[in-house]
Simulated scan of single mutants.
Amino acid sequence: MRHGQSFDPELEDQGCVVYPGGHEPVSSALLFRPYAFLEIGDEVVDARGDAWRFEHPWSWYSFSGLTGTPTWPLTLLARGGQPAEAKTVVAETVSGSHEAVEARWRSLTGAEPCAP
């Protein structure tokens, strides 16, 4: 996707094509990866004691039927279906919020987040 262009799950053709063997110079760099300390499917408990599954940076599943996103800090409960202990998750979420992660992503991309 180009800067300022938001993903639209209803569109089949979007974004741009890069031809690695083409004549145009191409460079890319990862500016920001939301929730780099989590893996898809990780289960966490939030500051309120509610359990959530991380499905995508913009998509969280609440085991108790809540809507929205977890309240930071987060504690990792399970990874890959196995109990897990990850101090990194607590350390990375001791300050800030999901809203702050979204705001940083928006400022870098100029687009709106959208769960696939």
Rank of each mutant, 00 (worst) to 15 (best):
D50F: 09
T75C: 10
I40S: 11
L11F: 07
S107A: 15
G110M: 13
A111C: 03
S62C: 13
R79Y: 11
A51Y: 06
E92Q: 14
V17R: 07
R33W: 12
L11K: 11
A111P: 00
Y61K: 03
P25M: 15
W72K: 13
W52H: 01
P116A: 05
P70A: 05
M1Y: 05
H98C: 06
F37V: 04
Y19V: 14
E12S: 14
R53K: 05
V90S: 10
R2F: 10
F37M: 08
D50W: 12
D50Y: 15
G49D: 12
L74H: 01
T109A: 06
Q5Y: 04
L30W: 08
S107R: 06
T75H: 12
A111N: 00
V45N: 04
Q14N: 07
S107F: 08
A100D: 15
A91D: 15
V89D: 01
A86V: 02
H23R: 15
F54V: 02
D8F: 02
F32S: 04
P83A: 07
L76E: 01
A84D: 07
R104A: 07
M1W: 05
V94Q: 15
T93G: 09
A36I: 04
M1V: 07
G65W: 04
Y61V: 03
A91L: 15
D46W: 02
R104T: 10
V101I: 14
H98W: 09
G41E: 08
L77A: 04
P34S: 02
A100R: 05
P73G: 13
L31D: 08
A47D: 01
L30Q: 11
P83L: 09
I40M: 12
A111F: 00
V90W: 13
E39N: 11
Q14K: 06
V89A: 02
R79F: 07
A100W: 09
T88R: 11
V90N: 05
A103M: 07
E24F: 14
G4F: 14
P73L: 10
W105N: 00
S27K: 11
V89W: 01
L77I: 08
P70F: 01
S6N: 02
S107D: 13
L31I: 12
P116G: 02
E112V: 03
P113T: 10
G4V: 14
R79K: 13
W58I: 00
G22V: 13
V89K: 02
Q14D: 03
L11G: 03
F63S: 14
E102N: 02
G22T: 12
L74Q: 02
V94L: 15
P70I: 01
L38M: 09
K87W: 09
D46Y: 03
W60A: 01
A103L: 12
H98S: 03
S95Y: 12
F54E: 04
V45T: 10
F54R: 01
G110T: 14
S59I: 01
D46L: 03
D42E: 10
D46E: 08
T93S: 15
R33K: 13
R2P: 07
Q82M: 12
Y61R: 06
W72G: 03
I40P: 01
S64W: 14
S107M: 10
F63M: 08
L108W: 05
K87P: 12
S97P: 00
G68V: 04
G4Q: 05
F7A: 01
W60D: 00
Q14F: 03
C16W: 09
